[in-house]
Each structure stands twice: as C-alpha cells, then as structure tokens.
Simulated assay, not measured.
Amino acid sequence: MAKVQRTVQYRYLHRARAGLAPGTETLSQLLARGLRMRHGEHVIGERAKLRIADLDQAGQLTVLNGIKGLDADSFLAGELLLYRKGFDVPAISEDLDGEHNRFELNLFKTDGKNKPIVGALYFAAIGDHCGIIASQSVTPRWLERYLTWLMKDKSELLDVEDVIELSNFLPVADAPEAAKAEARGFRIRAGAVNSAGQSERVKKKDAKGEGGTVLEVLRVLGVGDDAIESIRQDIPDDGKLEGDFQVYIRRGRKREAVSSRTLNHALRNVDQDDLDIDRKGSKARGGKLYLAEPVRVTETPAGLDPNEAIEQIIGQLYRWGNAGTINLGQDP
C-alpha cells in the first residue's frame, strides 16, 4: 500500500469558551472523562452506536469510530468519520452473457448495513494541545461541533453556553512574547464565482460552513440583488469575479492592533490560502501562516491507516514540543 502526504494541523483549546477555569482539567482529560461516562446501561467510549451524531439533520452521520488513550493519562485520540445513511441511484443491469437488445434499468439501493463514507478526520489531544489530519469534508470546525455535541448532549459535562473551540496558532519566529504576533489587519479572499454565478471552489458544496463567495459578501454588505445580478452578467464566459475583504481597527487616523488571541481564534477555520495577515514590518500569507507540518501516512483501500495517522499526529506534537514551539507541559 502506498504512502500519501497529509498535513498535521495544530490547534489548542479555548478554555474560556469551554467553561474551564485555569488549572482545571485539560481537553484530553475532559474528553476521556466524558467517554468513560455511561449513557443508559453502557459506557459511551465502549459502544460506537452511542457516539453517532446527526449534526446537520441532513442524512449525514458522524461517529467517533475508534478511540485511543481512553485508559491513558497522556493523550486521547480518535478517528472521526462522516458517512451517509444510504442512497438510491439509477443503475443499468449489464448482462454480457445474454443477447439483449437493451439492458434493463433499475434502482440500486445500498443495504441497511453498509453505508458510504463521505470523509474522515484523525486527531490526538495532549493536554489542551491538539493535532489534526483533516479532510475536505471533515474539517477542524466539524470536529469542534462533534466534540461539543459529545461533551454536552451525550456526556452532559458542558453547560448550555459552553462549546469546544480549537484555536489556531500563529507562530512568530524568534519572538517569545505573544504580543509580537499582533497584526495591523488582515485580508480574506472570498470565493471566486464564474459567469453563471457558481463558486469556483472545488467541492465547496461539500464543505459545511466554509467561507463565502464574492457575491455572498456583497449581499451581506447591503448590495442589492439587482446590482449583484448586473455584476454577474458582466463576468465573461472565460472569466471569474474575485474579491478581497480587508479588516482592520482604526482609532481616529491611527490603526490599532488586532491581538494574537483574536487572530488565533477568530480566524481558526479560514482557509490559509484565502488569508493574508499584515504585521508591522511583514506580511504573512498563504500556507505558512499557522502551525502545520506534512507527514506521510499509509493509504488503504478504505482510507488512511487510522493507527498510523494517529501515531504521526502524536509524533508531530512531540516534535513541536521538543523544538520549543509549543509547551506540552502547560496550557498553550
């Protein structure tokens, strides 16, 4: 089986949003405690069926399919799968042994047991630090939603107003103080649209809650439908409409800093390729903005090898820790 390159993204728990006071249990401890709890007669971490969530009520289900570290104090890791309940598709009954003039058409149905997988995500938490190998369909934002459901609705460990949110991390070379990551502002590129008004983003329809197109941004800014339609009609058949959305804070004539905490949290689910951050003396843009490293993982016919993916994530977290980029012994 071949090795493929995937990216381990770094995240850390936003403790205040989870209602966790300083010095109390960490993300990995919270998840382990929730999974050890009972739901009815069974322990949640021992029954996959207890971990199935229909987050969007749209026929797609999410399950924490495999768990590692439930009995360990050092980490908690798992494989998160998004799959469909099933589908019916038109099918042709090909019969090469017969002498038919026309093959019969019928409706092919998946059975009630085998269900198609949409995507997968692998994660590992050490303390409040989290490493993630995501996919286009199962993103870090989806992991946040699922873990919030698991800890709130299933384990009942979070209060109504609490959520699991995983902030990104904007590293600053040779700068020990987080304040040096402050920005003068940032620019987000909206999704391009073609002459038909359709998004140019690949498979954007499968990316739940990801981004918005230029036309959608214009609509939010109050541009009327007639003006938007006029703009769309101006796009040539071989062209596309692009746009950047610039954000900054101003007091009088002076720009005020956007804090590193805001950058790490508010922009955590923005595609790095769609983001530029303007810091005094430098501009950070594209794929090197936040902490992430490529790894190689075995790809099986059913997807990545989950054990190897989790091992790679844990190994990368420790490599960052040994390099001093993150401190695994303390809160981020």
Rank of each mutant, 00 (worst) to 15 (best):
residue 6 R to N: 09
residue 7 T to S: 10
residue 8 V to C: 05
residue 9 Q to A: 03
residue 12 Y to I: 01
residue 13 L to D: 04
residue 13 L to F: 01
residue 15 R to H: 10
residue 17 R to G: 07
residue 20 L to K: 03
residue 23 G to D: 02
residue 24 T to C: 02
residue 24 T to Y: 00
residue 28 S to F: 00
residue 36 R to T: 03
residue 36 R to H: 07
residue 37 M to A: 06
residue 42 H to K: 05
residue 42 H to I: 00
residue 50 L to A: 07
residue 52 I to D: 04
residue 59 G to S: 07
residue 61 L to R: 14
residue 67 I to H: 05
residue 69 G to V: 02
residue 76 L to Q: 03
residue 79 E to W: 05
residue 82 L to Y: 02
residue 82 L to M: 11
residue 84 R to K: 10
residue 87 F to M: 04
residue 89 V to F: 07
residue 93 S to W: 00
residue 97 D to C: 06
residue 98 G to Y: 06
residue 98 G to V: 13
residue 102 R to W: 06
residue 105 L to S: 13
residue 109 K to C: 01
residue 115 K to S: 12
residue 118 V to K: 05
residue 120 A to R: 15
residue 122 Y to V: 05
residue 123 F to N: 04
residue 125 A to Q: 02
residue 126 I to E: 01
residue 127 G to Q: 01
residue 129 H to F: 04
residue 132 I to H: 14
residue 133 I to P: 12
residue 145 R to Y: 09
residue 155 S to Y: 03
residue 158 L to F: 03
residue 162 D to T: 09
residue 165 E to I: 03
residue 167 S to N: 05
residue 171 P to R: 00
residue 171 P to W: 00
residue 178 A to Y: 00
residue 181 A to M: 12
residue 183 A to F: 07
residue 183 A to N: 10
residue 184 R to A: 06
residue 184 R to E: 14
residue 185 G to E: 15
residue 185 G to V: 15
residue 186 F to I: 11
residue 189 R to P: 03
residue 190 A to H: 08
residue 192 A to I: 00
residue 193 V to C: 10
residue 193 V to Y: 10
residue 196 A to M: 12
residue 198 Q to R: 06
residue 199 S to M: 00
residue 200 E to G: 08
residue 206 D to F: 07
residue 207 A to Q: 05
residue 210 E to H: 08
residue 226 D to N: 06
residue 229 E to W: 05
residue 230 S to H: 15
residue 234 D to P: 08
residue 236 P to L: 06
residue 240 K to N: 08
residue 241 L to E: 08
residue 249 I to W: 11
residue 251 R to I: 14
residue 251 R to E: 15
residue 255 R to S: 13
residue 257 A to N: 10
residue 262 T to A: 12
residue 263 L to K: 08
residue 275 L to Y: 13
residue 277 I to M: 11
residue 284 A to D: 14
residue 289 L to P: 03
residue 293 E to Y: 04
residue 302 A to F: 14
residue 303 G to Y: 11
residue 305 D to M: 03
residue 307 N to F: 12
residue 315 G to K: 01
residue 316 Q to N: 01
residue 322 N to T: 04
residue 330 Q to I: 00
residue 330 Q to S: 03
residue 331 D to Q: 01
residue 332 P to L: 09
